[in-house]
Design a protein around this nucleic acid. Structure first.
Length: 434
RNA sequence: GGAGAGAUGUCCGAGUGGUCGAAGGAGACGGACUCGAAAUCCGUUGUACCGUCUGACGGUACCGAGGGUUCGAAUCCCUCUCUCUCCGCCA
């Protein structure tokens, strides 16, 4: 019965499936994904045909029922009832056939990724991302620098061992000045966002599975990075992007209210299943961290410009922290299904790898209408036409990774660590020393 | 956690199984009146999908969600979710 309710669950505009077929096929290939577009088109046609047949039958049923409103001879009535019963069976059969086709159609259609920006570099691996800008030079030391794990231990700032005993691997206690540093970073970022017109929020750390799916996360299954909470239909959020995107789910927004800029401070939980490896130690990849996230709802015509603005804010934040970084334009294979274009900031981390490396600290994506379609977030334009909004997200500061960058870049030969000037007012101290 | 009440369009709110996509009111929009405004009067005012000569149109679905009964369900039955009130617990 309620089949067409599910048709909302789509990502790209499926009405464009046939008209943009070549483009979609090329995009799937550029992203290194496997989606058989022609099978989906065939299913779409089947679905449409079955729908028409079903609807015609329903029209006849309605007509038949309407004829029985008044009084009539019992013979006539008995005849109409018999016809109605026959129709009912036909409809049920047709509906279940339709449901079958529809299920497969939608399941496959959901795997089609968003279109990609024409300027996004084409490539499969993150090593094919394009460096578009570099700020500052990698920090040089007149001594052998330590990594943040050593620094955190010697200065009694981070305790991984106890956290492993209490909570498991990839958890940590922040201690002493590191606690103040976390809070200072949060406040520093929030103050900048407030000046840039964002509404500040602290979001729930738990969200419903539908919302996770709408944003494009996969709440279930082996490969899922998400912690599901048994028996509740909810999950621990992987990022406030989820709760900020869910904020206006199923709403029709007013054009004059756009763009809506939200920032969210939340904990972020990642299972990182099977994520052990070279960079598994330390704060870089952990099960729980705090993050200040930016999220924007806007008109389609605004999204590219706002994407640049989000990147500019991220750069402002890291320049204020005096941390050398570069910006990469993420290649098609590394975009993920919802993103149309994505920029990452990778900060210089002296303790990473042999001689220091850049490591991702922020990421900002323009998801165009892809998430909005799933979350059913629309706006009414001047002509009264209802259209999907564009959604963008970006990291203001992921605290754990920012701490990695600060500890490693600001370390001194005597083992103490200086602090970025911009943070001192929030910290109440300008170095960490034992 | 226990007990009870409820969920209808942008909002409030009515709705004996057929005449209900849904009364009435508010709001919004358009128009009349006015120098202008208020008041008054008239009209318009949901979304999605399928089809189409893509234009106005035709059809189907939607009264919290899912299922059932019936020739026919906003209306009857079952399940779930959410909201409110009271009690308990608690930061």
């Amino acid at each position: 019965m309620a089949i067409d309710r599910n048709t909302r669950i789509q990502m790209i505009d499926l009405r464009e499936l046939k008209t943009r077929r070549e483009e979609i096929i090329a995009n799937v290939a550029n992203r290194g994904m496997q989606v058989d577009v022609d099978v989906i088109i065939a299913l779409q046609e089947q679905r449409s045909a079955l729908m028409q047949e079903t609807e015609n039958l329903r029209a006849r049923r309605n007509e038949n029922a309407a004829m029985m409103k008044g009084k009539m001879e019992s013979d006539r009535r008995a005849q109409l009832i018999a016809e109605g019963k026959a129709l009912k069976e036909e409809i049920a059969a047709k509906e279940s056939a339709l449901e079958e086709v529809e299920k497969t159609y939608l399941a496959m259609a959901k795997t089609i990724p968003n279109y990609a920006h024409s300027a996004a570099p084409i490539g499969k691996l993150d090593t094919e991302n394009l460096e578009i800008r570099r700020w500052g030079e990698p920090t040089r030391f007149g001594f052998v620098p330590k990594d943040h794990v050593q620094l955190g231990e010697s200065l009694d700032l981070i305790d991984f061992d106890t956290a492993t005993r209490v909570s498991g691997p990839k958890f940590y206690y922040l201690k002493n000045e590191a606690v103040i540093l976390e809070l200072a970073l949060q406040r520093y970022a929030l103050d900048i966002l407030r000046k840039r017109g964002f509404t500040l929020t602290i979001t729930p750390d738990i969200a419903r599975e539908e919302i996770l799916e709408g944003i494009g996360f996969n709440p279930r299954g082996e490969e899922s990075n998400i912690y599901a909470i048994e028996g509740t239909g909810t999950c621990l959020v992987g990022t406030a992007e989820i709760t900020l995107g869910g904020y206006h789910a199923n709403k029709i927004l007013q054009e004059q209210d756009l763009p809506i800029r939200l920032s969210g401070l939340s904990h972020c939980f990642r299972r990182e299943a099977g994520g052990a490896g070279q960079y598994s130690k330390g704060l870089y990849r952990v099960h729980q961290f705090s993050k200040v996230e930016m999220f924007v709802y806007c008109l389609p015509s605004q999204s590219e410009e706002i994407h640049e603005q989000l990147l500019a804010i991220e750069e402002e934040i890291f320049q204020g922290l005096e941390i050398p970084y570069h910006v990469v334009d993420t290649c098609t294979g590394d975009l993920g299904a919802p993103a149309y274009r994505k920029f990452d900031i990778e900060a210089w981390m002296p303790g990473r790898g042999e001689k220091g490396e850049y490591g991702e600290v922020t990421s900002t994506s323009n998801c165009t209408d892809y998430q909005a379609r799933r979350l059913n977030i629309r706006y009414k334009d001047a002509q009264g036409k209802i259209q999907h909004v564009h959604l963008l997200n970006g990291t203001a500061v992921a605290i754990s990774r920012a701490i990695v960058a600060i500890l490693e870049n600001f370390q001194r030969e005597d083992g103490s660590i200086g602090m970025p000037k911009a943070l001192v007012p929030y910290l109440g101290f300008d170095e960490i020393r034992r």
